[in-house]
Design a protein around this nucleic acid. Sequence first.
DNA 1: ATGGTTTTTACTGCGTC
DNA 2: GACGCGGTAAAAACCAT
Length: 323
Amino acid sequence: MTDTSVRRFQRENEETAEREDEAADELTCPECGGDVATDTEHGEVVCQDCGLVVDEDNIDRGPEWRAFDASERDEKSRVGAPTTNMMHDKGLSTNIGWQDKDAYGNSLSSRQRQKMQRLRTWNERFRTRDSKERNLKQALGEIDRMASALGLPDNVRETASVIYRRALDENLLPGRSIEGVSTSALYAAARQAGTPRSLDEITQVSRVEKDEIARTYRYVVRELKLEIQPADPESYVPRFASDLDLSDEAERRARELLQSAKEAGIHSGKSPVGLAAAAVYAASLLCNEKVTQSEVSEVANISEVTIRNRYHELLEAEDGLAA
DNA sequence: ATGGTTTTTACTGCGTC
DNA sequence: GACGCGGTAAAAACCAT
C-alpha cells in the first residue's frame, strides 16, 4: 500500500515532466515553421501563421473553479492527499516509505536499514489492528442500534456481529461502507434466525439506501457463502397478527393456509411477505375477526392488490387439497 | 442490456352501511 | 356519499441471464 502509492506518485511526476518536454518541442509549426499558440478555450494548439491545428483535445489541468480571495481559495482547493473513508483514519496515519533513504536521499547504513524494516513492520501491525478494531466498534454499534429499532433479539445481533467480523477478516470492506455492510449483516442474520425483516423495514432504520443494502447483501452472501433460504412466510405471521390484534386461533389458521399453499406449490416465486399478509387476511375472515385489506397492507407494507391476488390463490389451494 | 415475472399504481364498478 | 372490495391495464421493480 505504502510502496505502491509512493511509486505511483513518482510515476505521475515523471509523466507530467515528459509532457512539459513535449510542449517545449512543439513551439514551432511542423508545416510552415511558424510560431504556435495555445487556445485554451478550445483546447487546441494552433499555428499562428498557417492556422494548422497542431494539437487538439488538450486537457485543461487548471482548477474548474474560481476564487476571489485567499480564504475562498483555501476553501475550494482540493489539493493534498485524498482522504478516504475506506480507512478508519481517512488515510491520515503514518506511513513509512519503502526506500531506504534518509530525508536527504542518502542511502542508509545496513544497520539503520534493519531498524527501519522493523519500524515498518510494527507500524503496519498497529495501524491495521487499530483500524480493524475501530471499524468493528463502529459497525457493532450500528448493528446494535438498528437491531433495537427493529426489535430484534440478541441472538440476531450476535449472528450479525459474526457475519460482520467474517466480512472484515475476508477483506470485503474496501469499496463498501461500514453502514452498508453492517446493515447487510443484520439483514442476513435476521433471515437466518427465522425472524426476518423485509428489506423495506431494514431500510427504514439504516443510514444507507435500499439499493446499496441489496447490492452489498448479495455480495456479502456470495463471498461468505452464507446459505440463506428464501424467507418463510410463516415467520411473518405472528408479527402481523399481533399488530392487528388477532386471536391465536386466527394466527394458527393463517399458518395452516400457508402450509397447504406450500403443499400445493403455489408459493414459489411470490414474495413471502405478500403471502403472509394474504394468509393473515384470509384467516381473519375465516375466524370472523375481520380486518380490512388496507389494514393488513398497512402493517405488512404490501399493496392491497397483492393481498387480493394471493388470498384467492390460498383459498383455492386449500379447497383443491381438501377435494 | 434484456426479457419474463411479480408487484404496484391508478382507476372503475358494485354493494353496503 | 364513504367505505370495503374485486378486477383490470399499464407502469415499475425485480431477477436471472
